[in-house]
Amino acid sequence: MSRRDSQSAYRFGNLFILINDKGIIVINTIAHTLKHIAFKDLNIFIQPFDTNQKCVFVNNTYQISVPNYLLIFNAGFELIEKHPFPEALEIHHAFKDSRGHIWACSFKKGIFLYTAAQLRTLYYLKGKK
């Protein structure tokens, strides 16, 4: 039984957000405008999926999780954070909390916590490469 549709639809105020394994479609229901964000344009290459996508609106940002990634967009739907997870962890959903920690969920291995301090170090070291 699928937990979610193959194309999930979310609604936050005037924005209607559709997510599938190709990308994200943002429709403004008042302005009647469309924005399409292809995952390949974000350098995200994911296996086709049909059940594990989610969008939440937190602190004026949109957090979208797809398998092995957490993507955070600003109110204008520009990508401001991209968090990839190791495939071995089999992460299907992740969430960044108000303290900056990321909680990543799996169906087989429980929860993985990346603290804000860990993330800062991780990206500092990545930037130094």
Binding site: L89, A104, G110, F112, L113, Q118
Partner: peptide, 12 residues
């Protein structure tokens, strides 16, 4: 430090 930073805490 780097190794620790990259390894999340696993709750299971």
């Amino acid at each position: 430090c780097g190794a620790t930073a990259q390894e999340p805490t696993n709750y299971s």
